[in-house]
Every structure is written in C-alpha cells, then in structure tokens.
Amino acid sequence: SHFELRVGTITLHFDNISEELAEELEKLAKNGVHADEIRRWWEEWLK
C-alpha cells in the first residue's frame, strides 16, 4: 500500500509499506527525526 508521511515541509512517499512500518515511521517523525534520516532508515530496511 502507498503511504505519505509529512515531515516538516517535506512529504515522503512510500510504496509497498506495511501498516506497522508506516506507524513506526510516523513515530519517528513525531519524535522530531528529520526526513533525510527517515528516508535513509527506509532505504536500509529495503535492502
């Protein structure tokens, strides 16, 4: 499923992401983690 995450002024787009993972990314964003860090985390997870 597709997921969009708003982090400050940036909107990150994720394809084929589980609800659980989407929730984890939302938690990171709410805790003030920068969009670049979240994207890096996601790319690492995909490997």
Score class of each variant (00 low, 15 high):
S1T: 10
S1P: 15
S1A: 09
S1W: 04
S1Q: 14
S1L: 15
S1R: 09
S1F: 12
H2W: 10
H2P: 02
H2C: 08
H2N: 09
H2Y: 07
H2A: 04
H2S: 07
H2G: 13
F3M: 05
F3W: 13
F3S: 01
F3A: 01
E4I: 03
E4S: 00
E4G: 00
E4F: 02
E4M: 01
E4N: 01
L5W: 01
L5V: 14
L5N: 01
L5S: 01
L5I: 14
R6W: 04
R6G: 09
R6Q: 15
R6M: 15
R6D: 10
R6V: 15
R6I: 15
R6E: 14
R6H: 15
R6Y: 04
V7W: 05
V7Q: 01
V7M: 06
V7T: 03
V7E: 01
G8Q: 02
G8F: 05
G8Y: 04
T9C: 12
T9K: 07
T9Y: 04
T9D: 15
T9V: 08
T9M: 09
T9F: 08
T9G: 14
T9H: 12
T9N: 15
I10D: 10
I10R: 02
I10G: 05
I10L: 06
I10F: 00
I10A: 05
I10V: 13
T11C: 05
T11V: 15
T11F: 06
T11E: 04
L12K: 00
L12S: 00
L12N: 00
H13D: 02
H13V: 13
H13P: 01
F14C: 04
F14N: 00
F14S: 01
F14W: 05
F14R: 00
F14E: 00
F14L: 03
F14P: 00
D15Q: 07
D15K: 06
D15Y: 15
D15V: 08
N16C: 04
N16L: 05
N16K: 03
N16I: 03
N16V: 05
N16Q: 06
N16W: 07
N16Y: 10
N16M: 06
N16G: 07
I17T: 03
I17G: 01
I17K: 00
I17L: 05
I17D: 01
I17S: 01
I17E: 01
S18W: 03
S18G: 08
S18M: 03
S18H: 05
S18T: 14
S18R: 04
S18P: 09
S18A: 06
S18K: 03
E19D: 13
E19L: 14
E19Q: 14
E19M: 13
E19T: 14
E19H: 13
E19A: 13
E20C: 07
E20N: 08
E20T: 12
E20R: 07
E20Y: 08
E20W: 08
E20M: 07
E20H: 10
L21I: 14
L21R: 04
L21Q: 11
L21W: 05
L21F: 07
L21N: 06
A22S: 07
A22N: 02
A22R: 14
A22G: 06
A22T: 05
A22M: 15
A22Q: 15
A22E: 10
A22V: 12
E23N: 13
E23D: 12
E23S: 13
E23K: 14
E23W: 13
E23Q: 15
E23A: 14
E23L: 14
E24Q: 13
E24W: 13
E24S: 11
E24M: 12
E24G: 06
L25H: 00
L25F: 08
L25K: 00
L25W: 02
E26D: 11
E26K: 13
E26T: 15
E26S: 14
E26M: 14
E26I: 15
E26C: 07
K27F: 09
K27V: 09
K27D: 10
K27Y: 11
L28F: 14
L28V: 04
L28G: 02
L28R: 05
L28I: 06
L28W: 10
L28Q: 10
L28H: 09
L28K: 07
L28T: 02
A29L: 05
A29I: 04
A29R: 04
A29S: 06
A29Y: 03
A29V: 11
A29T: 06
A29W: 04
K30R: 09
K30S: 14
K30V: 10
K30N: 12
K30H: 12
K30L: 13
K30A: 13
N31D: 09
N31K: 12
N31H: 15
N31M: 12
N31A: 13
N31C: 08
N31V: 10
N31W: 06
G32H: 08
G32N: 08
G32D: 06
G32L: 08
G32A: 09
G32F: 06
G32T: 06
V33K: 13
V33A: 14
V33W: 13
V33E: 10
H34T: 15
H34E: 14
H34R: 11
H34V: 11
H34I: 10
H34D: 12
H34Q: 13
H34G: 15
A35L: 09
A35N: 03
A35C: 04
A35R: 02
A35P: 14
D36G: 08
D36V: 09
D36L: 09
D36A: 11
E37I: 09
E37A: 12
E37L: 10
E37G: 11
E37T: 10
E37V: 11
E37R: 06
E37C: 07
I38W: 06
I38Q: 01
I38Y: 02
R39M: 15
R39S: 11
R40W: 10
R40L: 11
R40E: 11
R40P: 01
R40F: 09
R40A: 13
W41K: 13
W41E: 04
W41A: 12
W41D: 02
W41T: 12
W41C: 06
W41F: 14
W41H: 13
W41M: 12
W41Q: 10
W41P: 00
W42K: 01
W42T: 05
W42Y: 15
W42P: 01
W42F: 15
E43I: 08
E43S: 07
E43W: 08
E43Q: 11
E44W: 09
E44D: 14
E44N: 14
E44P: 00
E44H: 11
E44T: 07
W45H: 11
W45Q: 10
W45A: 09
W45K: 10
W45I: 09
L46W: 09
L46P: 05
L46A: 10
L46H: 09
L46C: 08
K47V: 13
K47A: 11
K47Y: 08
K47P: 05
K47E: 10
